[in-house]
Amino acid sequence: MLLQAMDIHKSFGESRILKGVDLTLDEGKVLVIIGPSGSGKTTLLRSLNLLELPEQGTLEINGKHVDFSKRLSKKETRDIRNQSAMVFQSHNLFPHKTVLENVIEGPVIVQKIPKDRAIDEAREILDQVGLIDYQNQYPFQLSGGQQQRVGIARAVALKPKLLLFDEPTSALDPELVSDVLKVMKDLATKGWTMVIVTHELKFAQEVADKVIFVDQGVISEEGTPDQLFQHPQHERTRRFLSRILQRT
């Protein structure tokens, strides 16, 4: 098992966002998290990369283990964070760096890979996401979809065990969504282990090995895409799915 999160609890002030969530994922599998806004799905995803620090629970990724009820050392934080990389809803590219510089920043500065090699690898990845011609542009010169694909390239360049996607297409114009989804589908085919928060149900149906429905801070239903989308067990899941389907 590559990823195992147990009994994750997280509050912001008085409001309890996650109320004991368990999550497991095997290597090479794709997990899609769906749920209404405010359900805690993004907080859950961010907890896997320690961008949120749960106050209770344990997390294990690729053999690295942390217990959130204890104070994490810098080394523990770094070790587990380096197992995954996040693709953000609003891409969060570094605006003062070119596309290529964005992609090599982590490998060169953090992983200390020689710059020449990092550049070669980055170009290969940019080629895969269809942006090799934009390598020397600044992020503001790209469209939203292109920016997001650079965001994906930046995460992939770190060669993490786990790729995390936080609603990667929600901020995009509809006509730009498919390019980003195509890149993600491509990664799934290549065997990347991925956890994706999304509202793109058709995409989820195609790539997910497992879908979980997060509602009010707990996983209220989980299963294969077929089980969850075609035969939802709970009324709330059914209502959520029909709302999403009406919207698209």
């Binding site: 990389a85 969060n92 770190l158």
Partner: peptide
Amino acid sequence: PKGQWEAGYTIGMNYAQ
């Protein structure tokens, strides 16, 4: 923006970096 900090952290940088 706070997202720039998060992007730095997610690629493995520490505070100083």
